[in-house]
Amino acid sequence: MAKISMIVNGNPVNANVDPRTLLVQFLRENLRLTGTHVGCDTSQCGACVVHLDGRAVKSCTTLAVMADGHEVKTIEGLAADGAPLHPMQEAFREHHGLQCGFCTPGMIMTAVDLVHRKGHELSDEVIREELEGNLCRCTGYQNIVASIAAGAKAMAKSDLA
């Protein structure tokens, strides 16, 4: 077993884990943060994307022990319970950026990371290119792209990062 401690959604977390525990397993099964999904489990679909030290990563391909001492943010950490949604979440709701919703947490975490890296004015081309590692089998992406463009603009006016 390995002792790990990290900050998850702003809260310090300590645990003793089997070193082969994936970060996504740790988040879902130990911390019960089930907003992060396991889709393909082969680092392709992006349903498991979380932020590690502020950068989008695939938590199904990251060992929990490797996140030891680092900071993790999941979809649950974007906006507080009962508070208004994060502007990117609100944009997905407003623009019908989801159908079944399974890929949505990963899409949104990828989108927020994209805005952090490339700013608030994003062309459709850039958004589509940046979504290379996130698969959606329902929407055909059209409204996801529209949601991210709108969410990026809305984030400029919001206190939520």
């Binding site: 680092s43 590690l52 989008a56 990563v57 695939k58 590692g133």
Partner: peptide
Amino acid sequence: IGDPAVRHR
């Protein structure tokens, strides 16, 4: 290489 999340690791 890969996608943005892969490039972060």
